[in-house]
Amino acid sequence: MADTAVQFELVSPEQLILSEDVEMVVVPGGEGDFGVLPGHSPMISTVRPGVIHVFTDGGVSSRIFVAGGFAEVTESRCTVLAEEALSVDEIDRAEVEIDLENAVEDLGGTDDPSEQKAAENRAVTARAKLAAIDAPVYQ
């Protein structure tokens, strides 16, 4: 079993979003995307805002946007702890554009470093969401 499938788990603080056996997952790691196939060497990595591609039956079965987090990979398992996760199809472009505008505005309008950081994070997440919508689908 472990030879043919990776047990992929996606968890957000609110709930366990996904737990299934898949062929491969591509995770947007902090230092570049990485694919996880069965037998991957154990590692722990940060995750940047981006899209997780889940492969089953030779193609992409789902694309899930995550707003950063952590990934733990073992030989038979890949666990992603995401800060926020939603399907790429569910992203509402207009809403994200408004978010981005607000974030950029807040960024300029404050001197408080912690608020600036929060606004910057929001901007980064919003830009990543937009990029996720426009990104081509792996075949």
Binding site: E31, M43, T74
Partner: peptide, 19 residues
């Protein structure tokens, strides 16, 4: 059990700083 086996990307301390 597992600590020795894991690879870290980026370094432990950087991951810790976020984790």
């Amino acid at each position: 059990g597992a600590s020795a086996a894991y690879e870290y990307e980026p370094e432990e301390n950087e991951i810790l700083a976020e984790l």
